[in-house]
């Protein structure tokens, strides 16, 4: 079957999609967006987290056909999404590449990093990196509606994302850092 939906602000069409196929598979294998990771395919690890009409979900558990006509944001589009948000545009509204010359809103190629991405790097929250895309999408969404999270809020918001490397402390640091920078407006 054919599925039409919006990914990172751009209309996309996927063809020959098998009816039982997941959104994750379509993103990775048909649209060439391998940022969302496939680790468990059963909702346990969160490494496939994307936003579906603004809501964080495990893309491995969304049937591709269920995404028909809807808006998806993946880690590749996170920087643009965050930039739009800071400009006060309605989240999820189609973007016409605000990232300027030489950048690609769909793949994130050439774009500046989102604040949450920069914070993960600065705090040393990335080791093997497999969990990182899902954590970034989940953490960014939390900071969108909870700019001043407690540690308990952060743990709760990230409770669906597993990391086998870091022991989570650096991830906590990164999210605290992003929150602090966001409130200082840097």
């Amino acid at each position: 079957m054919r599925v039409n939906f919006t990914v990172n602000g751009r209309p996309q069409e996927a063809d020959d999609v098998w009816e039982g196929e997941s959104l994750l598979y379509v993103l990775r294998e048909r649209l060439g967006l391998p940022g969302s990771k496939n680790a468990c395919e059963q909702g346990e690890c969160g490494s496939c987290t994307v936003r579906l009409d603004g809501v964080p979900v495990c893309s491995c558990l969304v049937a591709a056909g269920q995404a028909e006509g809807r808006e998806v944001v993946t880690v590749e589009g996170l920087a643009d999404y965050a930039r739009q948000r800071s400009w006060g545009a309605a989240p999820g509204a189609p973007l016409d590449s605000p990232s300027g010359e030489g950048t690609d809103s769909l793949t994130g190629e050439g774009a500046e990093l989102a604040p949450i991405q920069q914070a993960f790097i600065d705090a040393g929250a990335v080791q093997c990196g497999f969990c990182t895309p899902g954590l970034l999408v989940a953490a960014d969404e939390m900071l969108e509606h909870n700019p001043d999270p407690s540690d308990a809020d952060i743990r709760e918001a990230l409770s669906g994302n597993l990391c086998r490397c870091t022991g989570y402390e650096k991830i906590m640091d990164a999210v605290r850092l992003a929150a602090a920078r966001q409130s200082e407006g840097v």
């Binding site: 909702g43 969160g46 987290t49 809501v55 964080p56 979900v57 495990c58 558990l61 969304v62 989940a138 709760e156 918001a157 409770s159 669906g160 994302n161």
Partner: peptide, 9 residues
């Protein structure tokens, strides 16, 4: 139930 991602769906 599960996690935020699962509870959202």
């Amino acid at each position: 139930v599960a996690s935020p991602q699962i509870r959202n769906r």
